[in-house]
Design a protein around this nucleic acid. Sequence first.
DNA 1: ACTTAGCACTCTTTCGAGTTGAGTGCTAAC
DNA 2: GTTAGCACTCAACTCGAAAGAGTGCTAAGT
Lengths: 342, 342
Amino acid sequence: MKLDSRKKKVLQAIVEDYIATAEPVGSRTIARKYNLGVSPATIRNEMADLEEMGYLEQPHTSAGRIPSDLGYRFYVDCLMAPCDHSSIDHESIASAYRRKVREIESLIQMTVRVLSESTNCLAVVLGPQFGLARVQYLQFFPLFSHQALMVLVTDTGLAENRLIEIPEGTQPGELLHVGQVLNRTLAGLTLDEVSSTAWRELSSELARYRSIVEQVTELLEALTAQDGAERVYMAGTINILTQPEFRDIDKARMLLGLLEKNQALYHLLKPKTHDLSISIGEENQMVEVRDCSLVSSAYHIGQSTHGHLAVMGPRRMDYSRIVSVVQIVEGVFSETLRKNVG
Amino acid sequence: MKLDSRKKKVLQAIVEDYIATAEPVGSRTIARKYNLGVSPATIRNEMADLEEMGYLEQPHTSAGRIPSDLGYRFYVDCLMAPCDHSSIDHESIASAYRRKVREIESLIQMTVRVLSESTNCLAVVLGPQFGLARVQYLQFFPLFSHQALMVLVTDTGLAENRLIEIPEGTQPGELLHVGQVLNRTLAGLTLDEVSSTAWRELSSELARYRSIVEQVTELLEALTAQDGAERVYMAGTINILTQPEFRDIDKARMLLGLLEKNQALYHLLKPKTHDLSISIGEENQMVEVRDCSLVSSAYHIGQSTHGHLAVMGPRRMDYSRIVSVVQIVEGVFSETLRKNVG
DNA sequence: ACTTAGCACTCTTTCGAGTTGAGTGCTAAC
DNA sequence: GTTAGCACTCAACTCGAAAGAGTGCTAAGT
């Protein structure tokens, strides 16, 4: 059954009023504040219909209506007015990115802070995935007799480095040699391919340097780790607690408990393949976030998706504003990544 | 005025009962549970005395007593029984450290998790301070035509590295040269000295490489930064919310708000110079933590203090247990640092 | 002189009853 | 199809009474 134009208007009014006030919305309120030119009684009839169709819910008989997940979904897909851009503080976003940041980690930390501050919600960023990046080169620099620095540069321009242990007395020439063999074997492969192929046994040349090769493996595995727990950045947990829906300590605790498990967050965000995705309430798989909505976006370096950024808040979030903010921040962030790193 | 032996016993009973139950303790409870061989009436007299002396407080006339800050302080200093070590899960701590961890950052993250899990409180670790470490050597490795890797190794064995931009077309030989000049000038100085001296103008030799020198400065400044905001690690915020004293959302929010400001945490912990320090309630300067106690300990690499680890919980925390855990973890952590890094 | 039983008193907490107010659903008239 | 009117429902608030925990004081006991 399709919604006629007046039903749409009523639904929209209810969603927007509820977003603004966090109180169930009654027929009288709608008739008064949003002039649809009909009386409360008419609105009541419409509301009864909308409830029957599953777009609205009633906390109890003598309360107003609140949107159901389906109601929010319809609002987001069909009714939502494009965001009034004047309500977004473009300047504070832009100025944050004007400061030059060299480390990718600081850039992400800044991004997550900007996101949480301009949405008053929780913000999450998943650090770049390396699985599809290709090995450009791998190099070892001797530091001490027993330590060296390993640097992995990928075609996306990301350079990861790590200290490794080397057998006492390894000569710089030997390190160079190991590097050359590895480069010959690995260059051009994606990190995922590298992790999944049996390159380790490839060469008797490296038999003597097993401990080094193992450490290379470790780095690669850390970079492509399935659970990605190491690469979750978060800010604004405090904002969660200011929402009236989390006055209940136990709800708040359940959610914060989830947030401490980086891995869970990773799994929540990872499946979002689309550029922009909105999940409302029960649409999220995890029970802990069934009262929340998530607006997430992939970010890119060049063509390929490198990670995700997201904003989480109550289902009753200001979708239109938050979608805009997420898009804007994703844009600046991707662009900054490209410039600084590519 | 000194406390006679019975008063001490009463105070101890009250503190311990309150720690266990979070409820104000009445005279009857004490007479029943802790057999001091006297009647509730006698205990009441003692309690009135203790209150007058400032060791106890009464939430309202018809409630039992709770310890004041002074009461806790006396308990911690004079009454506290050494912790029953069987209540600590040594094995789970030890096993965490048995897994070999190469990165100092992962080690800290693990430590903070272990601390929070074995205390059920919030755990904080301040990353190592570099101010007193001495430059052992500084080196540049060319990566791309416009990027190089800078590595700083200190006498404490910590190696920090960072990507830097170099002017297009800089030759490897030039980089080597810059490294040599810098080493000649800086080797042996503490990072604090380096930051505060005017070494940057030292040499016309480096005039052409100003941008590189600037990036060296940036790294040094980041490592010795006064506010240390970058180096605060935390786990177990969720534990805070399980404490009955934070059922009140606004209190919880105030505290969590503080926790989001790494800098504040840094300032809370930094002044603790002693090996082990306990701050109770109002003894902490910041209002946000006036309902909390903090057990902190410095950790060392060799002789010198390198940072702090701490546990924060309600004033009503199990001091004796938490002190033990902090000491144990500090021990294993310092030892692991020394072995892996020194 | 210290201890203790007894008792009146205080103050919070709990519970239920009554009241208010917001909002609905239905019916009948427009 | 719309609307006014009205009875009905239910959460939220208020109030007072009762219960319960604990105290402080007094007077008697050791």
